[in-house]
Amino acid sequence: MEVTLNHFLFVSGLLFAIGLAGVLVRRNVIVIFMCLELMLSAANLSLVAFSRYNVTPGGDADYNAQVFLFFIITVAAAEVAVGLAIIVALYRAKQTTDITQINSMKN
């Protein structure tokens, strides 16, 4: 079966759904964070797929989407750095990375 746009979109969505399920299922903050990264990358996949399939009039790929993706990766990297720093700070304060134990938003 020839690979179509839908194939890529499906894989992208599937990865996103798995990431989402992971965020909801796992209790370890670090793993949840990994799942968030997975969801971001899954979204990237659909961007690249659209960029390749929606060609410009000249028949070339639409590289605007890939520039966009470049920004996403940069921001994601920054986010990972800050997020992990926060997790470390949280761990220092609470001695845990279990998200069910981190409920100081209550009360």
């Binding site: 020839e2 746009l5 839908n6 979109l9 499906f10 909801l24 390749r52 399939y53």
Partner: peptide, 23 residues
Amino acid sequence: LGCVFVVQLVRVLADYSAGSRVM
């Protein structure tokens, strides 16, 4: 929720005619 999302995805893609393009 993941399953619901996948079901929704499948239904959207089934309706997305432009998605059957070949590279």
